[in-house]
C-alpha cells in the first residue's frame, strides 16, 4: 500500500495523463471480459436471466471442445486466415514492387492502391455478394455473355466456391495495407547495399532475395501485426455474404459465436467460444509482434 502510494506520487503526471485511457478500457473491455469469463462457466441463457447464477463449471468448455461444428469452424477459420494472410502478403509485395518501379503517375497509382482500405468490411461483403450473385451477379453475367459457362455458377452456395469467394473479398480488402507498408519500406530502403551487391556480382533475383527482402521483413511484420489486430473483421464480410450458411458451410469461429449467442441464446457457451477466439487473435498478434521485434534487431546493421 505504501509502495503503491509512493509509486503514484513519483509518477503523478504520466499516470494522470494515462488515467482516462486506462479507465475507459477497464470499463468497456476488461470489465466485460471478466464478466464474460464468468458466464463461460454458467448455463446463462438470455431468455432466462436467473440462469446467470447456474454455475456449471467447465461443462461449456467441455461441450465446445467436443462439438464437431466448433472444430469445423475453428479449422476453417485458421485455414481462412492462413490462406488470406499469405496471399495478401504475396500480392501486396508484388503490388508494391510494381508501383515502386514506375515513375510516371506513381502517386496516383499509390492512391488507387489505398482505395480498398477505405471500404467498410460490410461494404466489401455487400459488393462481392452482389458481384458473385448467381442470378444477377456481374461475374456470372460476364461468364455467360462470353460463353465460358452455360449455367450460373453458385459462388456463394457451393462449399469451396463460397469459401473462395469470401477469401477473395477479404484479400481484396486487406492487400492494400500490405502493399502500402511494403512500399513505404521500399521508399525507405538505402541504395548503397543494393549497389554494393550489384558490384559484388549478384543477379537481380539475388539482390532481391538477400538484400531487399530482409530489409522489407520488418515492414511486412508491421503489416501482419496491424492485420492480426482485426482479423475478426472477416465476421462482417461473412455475415453479409453468406451469414455463415448455407447450412453452416461457411461458418467461421466468429459467426458461430454470434449464432450461438444471439440466435440460440446460449450466452454461456458462446462466451466459452469467444475466449477461444480472443486467444486466437492474441496469438496471431503476439506471434507477428515477436517476429517484428526479431527482424528489427536483425536489421540493426542497416
Amino acid at each position: 500500500m505504501k509502495r503503491m502510494r509512493r509509486y503514484v506520487r513519483n509518477n503523478a503526471v504520466p499516470l494522470a495523463l494515462l488515467a482516462p485511457a486506462v479507465m475507459i478500457i477497464l470499463v468497456v473491455v476488461l470489465l466485460p471480459l471478466i464478466f464474460s469469463f464468468y458466464t463461460g462457466f454458467t448455463n446463462y441463457r438470455l431468455i432466462r436471466p436467473e440462469s446467470l447464477w447456474d454455475f456449471i463449471g467447465l461443462r461449456n468448455y467441455a461441450r465446445v471442445l467436443t462439438d464437431a461444428d466448433f472444430w469445423a469452424a475453428l479449422w476453417r477459420t485458421v485455414l481462412f486466415l492462413t490462406v488470406a494472410l499469405n496471399l495478401e502478403m504475396l500480392l501486396g509485395l508484388c503490388l508494391a514492387l510494381m508501383v515502386n518501379r514506375i515513375t510516371w503517375g506513381q502517386r496516383t497509382m499509390r492512391t488507387i492502391m489505398m482505395f480498398p482500405m477505405m471500404f467498410s468490411p460490410i461494404l466489401v461483403g455487400f459488393q462481392f455478394k452482389y458481384m458473385f450473385n448467381d442470378t444477377i451477379g456481374v461475374v456470372n453475367n460476364a461468364l455467360q455473355s462470353l460463353g465460358l459457362s452455360q449455367k450460373a455458377i453458385p459462388f456463394l452456395v457451393d462449399r469451396w466456391l463460397a469459401f473462395g469467394s469470401i477469401a477473395f473479398a477479404e484479400i481484396w480488402m486487406s492487400t492494400s495495407i500490405f502493399a502500402i507498408l511494403i512500399l513505404a519500406g521500399l521508399f525507405a530502403m538505402p541504395r548503397d547495399p543494393i549497389e554494393a551487391a550489384r558490384v559484388d556480382g549478384c543477379t537481380s533475383w539475388q539482390v532481391f532475395r538477400h538484400i531487399t527482402l530482409p530489409f522489407l521483413m520488418p515492414f511486412i511484420y508491421i503489416a501482419m501485426t496491424i492485420r492480426s489486430l482485426d482479423v475478426a473483421r472477416a465476421y462482417d464480410i461473412v455475415d453479409v455474404m453468406t451469414g455463415g450458411g448455407p447450412a453452416g458451410r461457411t461458418e467461421l469461429l466468429w459467426t458461430l459465436i454470434a449464432r450461438t449467442a444471439y440466435d440460440d441464446a446460449r450466452m454461456g457457451r458462446a462466451n466459452a467460444m469467444a475466449y477461444v477466439s480472443i486467444l486466437l487473435s492474441i496469438f496471431f498478434t503476439w506471434f507477428f509482434f515477436r517476429k517484428l521485434m526479431a527482424a528489427r534487431q536483425h536489421l540493426g546493421a542497416f
Binding site: L33, A232, I278, S281, T285
Partner: peptide, 13 residues
C-alpha cells in the same frame, strides 16, 4: 485485439 463479436456478448448483457 479482442474481436468485436467476442466483446459484444458481455457488452450486450
Amino acid at each position: 485485439t479482442v474481436p468485436g463479436i467476442a466483446l459484444s456478448l458481455p457488452l450486450f448483457i
